[in-house]
Design a protein around this nucleic acid. Sequence first.
DNA 1: TTTAACATTAACCTTGACGTTAATGTTAAT
DNA 2: ATTAACATTAACGTCAAGGTTAATGTTAAA
Lengths: 140, 140
Amino acid sequence: MGEKYYKIEDVSIKTGLTKRAIRYYEDLNLISPKRTDSGYRLYTDEDIEKIQKIISLKDSLGFSLSEIKAALELDKNVKNILSGELADAETIDNYAKLIEKQIELIEEKSKKLLMAKQKFEELLIDLSKLKQKSKEVNKE
Amino acid sequence: MGEKYYKIEDVSIKTGLTKRAIRYYEDLNLISPKRTDSGYRLYTDEDIEKIQKIISLKDSLGFSLSEIKAALELDKNVKNILSGELADAETIDNYAKLIEKQIELIEEKSKKLLMAKQKFEELLIDLSKLKQKSKEVNKE
DNA sequence: TTTAACATTAACCTTGACGTTAATGTTAAT
DNA sequence: ATTAACATTAACGTCAAGGTTAATGTTAAA
């Protein structure tokens, strides 16, 4: 199968990350692109999707790169099990608990986010009321 | 009115931040506690609430301290206007736009958070199905 | 074939958000 | 009056997440 490969500059353009950041993520074993014989990094579409996932987790969840690594590995391990890799009941239970923890963490963050949003929305409403009033005053 | 004041160690215990971090936030002008004649910092309940707000913004939104500062100042400016400080229509509009931006940012983060949550929930479901199957196999 | 535009590693630099240590002052209790 | 347990500032250290620079190799096009 003829897979398409991208060089690092293309990936940089596609993802918005700098080349330095992309290489840094490789240092942390977050991604592992192929190489040409001469040593150039070659990225697949999958690699790029993974990078975009990383960006999203970093920006939205405020996760550190090492937390992201843990989450991605958890995801991968579970998917391996789901696709046939054998695992005993205890292992499965442990993974399930880890996932539950992640979900709880996300829910907590969601809640706080919505609270912050609500505060801003209230401010906005108050401001628009104020604007309305000042308009009426100027009419007279 | 006899306001209650806390010293830095109490604040540290109440908020979970280290004393170093609390002083650092003061360096960044995020908080401005009173001082005793001898120079000891004195915190009010309001100060503590503000610190808790900062912690929440930092952890849930993944905001940097300077972003938090901007958001808190925006909040304060708007509240000043709402409580009587005069401002022309343009100023009000500008603040409104800034608030809208914050809200959009929060919505974006919320969306991504929920997507991540959903992925984990799907994993969890698949895992529990798998567990069910392995139980059945062991019965035979 | 030489040049422009890519790529590589290695090494040092920077910024944010604190940790740590040192030297010293203050307060409350004994 | 002394001591323990607080407090202060100042200064240097650290860690994550890259930025920047230097020296060098590769590739595609003119």
